[in-house]
Design a binder for these strands. Structure first.
Lengths: 229, 229
DNA sequence: CATTTTTAAACCAAATATATACCAATATAT
DNA sequence: ATATATTGGTATATATTTGGTTTAAAAATG
């Protein structure tokens, strides 16, 4: 052990050290921090102090504290993505998705295979089991839209969708979005996902595109609703 | 670092370790992981714990679990890919433009200003003076579509259009494309550009989008015509 | 001095991990 | 083709771990 014994550490000191571990990359996305009781010992502080530090980091959006489970990293270490992606606003993002995803539905009807749709079906089922868990739902939702893009077999489109997914995950908006994801909204999304999938399976490009537009319109509404709060 | 020696491993810890093995490349695409029962022993955890970890990784899209068979790596290690752009085929590009540009027209009607349209008009005029010069025409054409994207005031969309423009300029088939650009085709393009611009000025989003689709269809035809030669 | 922060200990509820047994899908050898 | 072994899927009862909370005393701070 390398001598932390030097000085007494306050809550904000500990927060700073953990924050640094995260942006340095020693702690990566989805990693679980050591339990509060262990951190307390390694930093030579009381559990209550560590707890304050972690709450600070949670407010800053670096970690997510899950009672009974642990504290997890929710922050991507500085990758140098283009400014256009980092600074994209939620509304810009929605307009871009409005451009892409309905047409992606049409292409999916043309190029998608049974296996693609089966995968999307699996994700639908998973999302339907996440009605009470906005975070997991949101993650599965991202995968659903990625799987949809996959089914077009268009590497360029898939790449663009991936870039867009980065916008969604990095921002504070994600947290705000989770707040707007009540059970009713999630159920509505799930119904729309199913309808889209059905339209793809029955090879109805325009119907799939139309439902996708409705889906995005729903999402846009819940977004504006959230920003007015 | 050292001597974490005997820390108990939770599901997310195991998930993190496997995730790192995958992105590091120790586990490659289509590799099969060890059976759950073996992993459980090597990580010193119960099978249920390993199982939870693997399910997490499946949610994240790193692995695919096939009952009775095994668990397989499905993650394309670190795309972040210029590859998707460099290797994009002309048809992939056309499909992507089909997705983006009609909707860009709609957004242009919403957010475009007179100055934007004036700039596009200038480019139209320039293109009309290039009927005999496919290379110059092609350059101006790129600028026209970029100016159209600019008029949406959507930084994300503009960035995507720029990426796509790189595809167009880099590749060999750009040369091929120039071969198909006879005077008749260029005149047709020019007429369509004018029509699009007019629809934007008169604030008719759907008409602008429709003409854009026709424009892209024309381009796609001349593309397939070229590749059959 | 008054105030805030840290410490320390105990307890709670929820989430997770363990251990075991059995089922279902798949692969392999006969 | 059939039988057998291997693999993931599921269920369950129990034990452990984890964050959440409260309280009171000690230490640091201004």
């Amino acid at each position: 052990m390398t001598a932390h014994a030097e000085q007494k550490l306050g809550a904000s000191d500990i927060a700073a050290m953990v924050r640094r571990e995260i942006s340095k990359g020693n702690l990566q996305l989805h990693d679980r921090l050591q339990p509060e009781r262990v951190l307390a010992e390694t930093y030579g502080a009381a559990r209550g102090t560590v707890r304050k530090a972690l709450n600070l980091l949670e407010d800053e959006g670096f970690v997510e504290i899950r009672p009974g489970s642990g504290t997890y990293v929710v922050h991507k270490p500085d990758d140098s993505s283009p400014a256009a992606i980092d600074n994209a606003t939620p509304l810009e993002l929605m307009d871009t998705r409005f451009a892409l995803e309905p047409h992606i539905c049409r292409l999916s009807v043309l190029h998608g295979r049974r296996a693609d749709f089966d995968k999307m079906e699996t994700l639908c089922t998973r999302m339907e089991q996440c009605v009470e868990d906005p975070v997991s739902f949101s993650e599965a939702d991202t995968h659903f839209h990625r799987a949809l893009a996959d089914s077009t077999r268009n590497g360029l489109l898939i790449w663009i969708i991936d870039q867009i997914a980065n916008v969604r995950s990095q921002d504070d908006w994600t947290r705000m979005r989770h707040l707007t994801l009540d059970a009713a909204t999630i159920n509505q999304y799930n119904a729309q996902h199913r309808q889209i999938l059905n339209a793809l399976r029955t090879r109805e490009p325009e119907r799939a595109a139309t439902i996708m537009k409705e889906h995005l319109e729903t999402a846009r509404l819940s977004l504006t609703r959230a920003s007015e709060t």
